[in-house]
Simulated assay, not measured.
Amino acid sequence: MENILKFTISSFLLLSLVLMSCFTDPKEEKEWQYLFNGNDLSDWGIKIKNHEFGENYNNTFKVDGNVLKVSYEEYQSFEEKFGHIFYMKKKYKNYHLSLEYKFSGNHLQGAPAWSVKNSGIMLHCQDPKTMLLDQDFPVSAEVQLLGGLGEGNRTTANICSPGTDVDINDKLAKAHCNSSNSKTFHSDDWVKVEVIVRSNQLIKHIVENDTVLTYSNIRVGGNKVPKNYLKNIGSPLKDGYISLQSEGHPVEFREIKIKEL
């Protein structure tokens, strides 16, 4: 009887392991690829307003302790130096992007008031080499990252549309920026943001595991289309580069990784 019981228990455990292996993909975590290696800015390219592509004016973007930083330590004043750092190794179309961000330090003198604790993840960006010298932002869909100001509501992972239009609930989002339903993060702690992108068909913004916004139909349009993109108005943005933004407030990024879908 004892041997039969041992055999039954062993068989049950073996069957459980087999079933678990059927429903668990051992490669799932290995599918994530880190875009930022934590050591340097390899595979990234920089475009700052009124500077040529590749010039990291005043070391705006730097690496410090496995963190990618937007730094204004060498600035005296902002002077409209809107900047973006692009992952240049490839364009992406269908993917799951994940990163953590936090604001730090003080808002730079001369930067616009709206840019206090304000940054962004830019999706489906135009090639930065095609940006005009004095262009503020790449044609893209922006996951606007905001920090709380100590009181009141200030949602994060909103959608802004530099040079683009998007639909929310199948209707044109007429405002340049449209709010998510996230909570406000007043303290300068790390906040995890994820974006699930299905070309230009469906995009989801996720904050700390909660879906806070969905939209669709990214296309060239709106009131911030650069002169060399006017002929593309109405064209769908089905893929593009990914970039991170510098708008006048120091911000840090880490755990920047992607899984293609």
Results as ranks from 00 to 15, higher is better:
Tyr241Asn: 04
Leu237Tyr: 01
Val143Ser: 07
Leu17Phe: 12
Lys47Arg: 08
Ile168Ser: 00
Gln135Arg: 05
Gly105Leu: 08
Val191Cys: 02
Trp190Tyr: 00
His107Pro: 07
Glu29Cys: 10
Arg254His: 04
His84Val: 06
Lys27Tyr: 14
Gly105Asp: 11
Val191Lys: 00
Ile4Ala: 15
Lys171Val: 02
Lys231Tyr: 12
Ser246Lys: 08
Cys125Ser: 06
Val70Leu: 10
Val116Pro: 07
Asn169His: 08
Cys22Ala: 15
Asp239Arg: 05
Ala111Gln: 09
Gly45Phe: 12
Asp40Asn: 11
Gly150Trp: 07
Leu132His: 10
Ser21Leu: 13
Ser187Asp: 15
Glu79Thr: 12
Lys6Met: 12
Glu142Ala: 04
Tyr92Gly: 05
Phe253Cys: 01
Ile48Val: 06
Trp32Leu: 01
Pro250Gln: 10
Leu145His: 01
Val70Gln: 07
Lys91Gln: 10
Glu55Phe: 14
Gln76His: 13
Thr155Gln: 14
Lys6Glu: 12
Val63Trp: 00
Val70Lys: 06
Asp134Trp: 13
Lys62Leu: 09
Gly38His: 07
Gln33Pro: 11
Phe82Ala: 08
Leu132Asp: 09
Asn209Arg: 14
Gln109Ser: 15
Tyr34Cys: 09
Asp25Glu: 11
Thr156Glu: 11
Ser179Met: 11
Thr184Pro: 04
Lys183Val: 05
His107Phe: 05
Leu133His: 13
Asn56Tyr: 08
Ser16Met: 14
Lys231Pro: 10
Asn200Tyr: 03
Leu146Thr: 09
Val195Trp: 00
Ser243Arg: 03
Ile168Gln: 03
Phe103Glu: 10
Met20Ser: 14
Tyr87Ala: 09
Phe82Gly: 00
Pro138Glu: 06
Ile203Arg: 04
